[in-house]
Write a protein that binds this DNA or RNA. Structure first.
Lengths: 155, 155
DNA sequence: GGCTTACTACTCGGATACTGCTTGTCCGAGTTCAGGGGG
DNA sequence: CCCCCTGAACTCGGACAAGCAGTATCCGAGTAGTAAGCC
């Protein structure tokens, strides 16, 4: 049970797009910035486009650019866009199967196991939703070099 | 990114073991209670034994029994035992790779992206650790039939 | 009759296949830009 | 000189394979219980 690498790639790429500002940037250069496979990063960025976090323009001088301000993008938005279904626990209602299920009357309430696990999932989602990319940007800006290095990498 | 089914199986099985009380119960019957593949459930229960949540006895009349009280078993214990590594986010330090990595000085602090994601992971873990199987047991006991049905299913 | 012993049946435990998803790659549709030709 | 047209290059976008973790299964090691044989 581990989150795909696409999330880390997406977050760093979104931050980089903010650092360089303005014009669209191709997935090839965005990938080269962190030594990632370009075609696969492109695939992940498509998910961000569908989610409305990025805007894409085809053709030469095309690429991706931020569709919102960093402060309007939460970590949950990114995880949700890249990973799709973000419910960690999937209840299969096994309480209704097998010997116990056949003997039990049709349950009226939700499965208490499901409720408990969903409670934890919700805490996770809330913690993700409480943090925006702007918060991370501010943290990165504590080293004034960071912005210059990133902009230099995109030459 | 979804949690394996083993967690749901493990939680229900641990609760069932508490309902029937006392003597060891074989994995075959525990699996039949919910219509699960016996051999695979057995494999999952082995993880719980290694984690110290269950005790196993081989041979005829053997099986698994609870090694602790329900109140001493948190959901985090179960998830940790079954899933192994429970860090959802794995930082691959891509900030140190590619063009940016080559231009950047060696970073002194931890990656802010990692810190933010770990914060969410920690919220999840805390929510899991805050709930014990005893809490779920109490919820199940609100339907007095439940205990009788489960005990009947194990003949 | 009581004890020892061999045997059988049953359990867990780990080693062994299979499946689906994550990861990775490739080619086509569409657009922009540049360059050449014509008015 | 200005405009139009053709071509090429570059981009995203989705369709197509490979690798790996999760899923499922099977067989062996070990133990308790039983039944037979012996004292």
């Amino acid at each position: 049970m581990r989150m795909g690498k696409g999330v880390e790639w997406a977050i760093h790429t979104l931050l980089n797009l903010d650092f360089i500002g303005g014009g669209p940037m191709g997935s090839a250069q965005l990938a080269a910035a962190h030594g990632l496979p370009a075609a696969y990063l492109n695939k992940q960025l498509q998910s961000l486009v569908k989610a409305g976090l990025l805007a894409s323009t085809p053709g030469p001088r095309g690429g991706f650019r931020l569709a919102r301000q960093l402060g309007e993008i939460t970590l949950l938005d990114v995880v949700d866009a890249v990973e799709g279904d973000v419910n960690l626990f999937h209840c299969e209602e096994i309480r209704c199967c097998g010997a116990i299920g056949e003997l039990s009357p049709p349950p009226d309430g939700p499965c208490p196991v499901k409720v408990a696990m969903r409670r934890a999932d919700e805490a996770w989602r809330q913690a993700l939703a409480a943090q925006t990319l702007q918060d991370i940007r501010l943290e990165l800006d504590r080293s004034p070099e960071t912005g210059n290095v990133i902009r230099a990498a995109f030459g």
